[in-house]
Design a protein around this nucleic acid. Sequence first.
DNA 1: TGTTGTGAAGTATTTCACAGCC
DNA 2: GGCTGTGAAATACTTCACAACA
Lengths: 211, 211
Amino acid sequence: MVRNKIPASTVRRLSHYLRSLEGFAEEGGTVSSEELAARGQTTAAQVRKDLSHFGSFGKRGLGYQVDELRDRLRQILGVDRPWRVALIGAGRVGLALFEYPAFRSRGYECVAIFDNDPEKVGQQWGDLPIHSVDDFEETIRRLQVELAILAVPAASAQEMARRAVEGGVRGILNFAPIRLNIPPSVTVEDVNLVMELEALSFAITQSERGE
Amino acid sequence: MVRNKIPASTVRRLSHYLRSLEGFAEEGGTVSSEELAARGQTTAAQVRKDLSHFGSFGKRGLGYQVDELRDRLRQILGVDRPWRVALIGAGRVGLALFEYPAFRSRGYECVAIFDNDPEKVGQQWGDLPIHSVDDFEETIRRLQVELAILAVPAASAQEMARRAVEGGVRGILNFAPIRLNIPPSVTVEDVNLVMELEALSFAITQSERGE
DNA sequence: TGTTGTGAAGTATTTCACAGCC
DNA sequence: GGCTGTGAAATACTTCACAACA
């Protein structure tokens, strides 16, 4: 079904489409590529091209069945099943993520929290204890952790990423502002807030100079 | 100096290059496009092309002067001067961002915090009071806020974005998972954590199906 | 009729490769 | 000799436009 490599831009848009469809209360309705495009800041042709990578599940003349497309998008994005997540780093960022309701509601279930600060180890967040990093690899392997959210200082990020891979993790959401060096079989997504702010100040600076 | 539209991918890489150069302790040294590429997960040709949009500040046969390139990148990205930032939404995400040391150290200075929860209004974070949103536009205009960090629930994000624009903000870092509808003169950068996680689960699901 | 799915055309971005300069 | 800066070539992505079909 999936013919070639899917561009990252397409994956991001698929996520948007799914979000839009979840807004539709009306079950059993249909939606056109035109409507999806309007909600997703893109074009109808782009919506159709994005979806066409995964098969053809629209009806010509009618559009897409909302329920069906939503289910299909969930399958494609892999969110039709729960994911076991470990939070590495119980600081402010970790706490914000841990309490972010959207994660759990989309099937990302935090099953373990780790920190290297002896003050924090043993504390509870919700019903989860904060583990020491001593037996990190064994613990995440035992708990069958698939995704790691890496919210530790840059200095320890590479080391913890390596250990997470060692423990069998398949993907890492990395908040540390460094490029992780890990095997290509493990997927990494970087969230770099300073970079986002710099993109803002760049754009503003450019527009000021331009005019 | 800047000839055409600069791709977003280039801007992100410039931010990486700057981060790499800040790692260089040695003042007065030089760095080649090859070295920068190695640290930034890209190619030497890409580094040179990225920089060439803004002029030619390397020495053939030698490479780039570290200090000079770093200063030039700061100018280009607009981080050679402080930016006045307002934090909108004093929840967990807001707190994590407020205490994120990298922001302040790069010149993004939080000058006001807002929340619509009467329980929070009047509290202090560091030496900043949490303001009510009642006189939001006037306050940010008076404080000459240039950037807004929007960390409020999706339901109020559009409204607060509109009011921020009204108050004279030039850029918005948006954590709400919706597309803001604002005039093109104001720049928006979206940080969508669910989307990042979905990109991970997509990639993992694909690789499992492929093999 | 109305809207999809998709080759073909059009743009945008990256990579190549080499002249030009230190 | 070594490394930059940059047109030209290659590749990737988006948009067009229309046949296919419910």
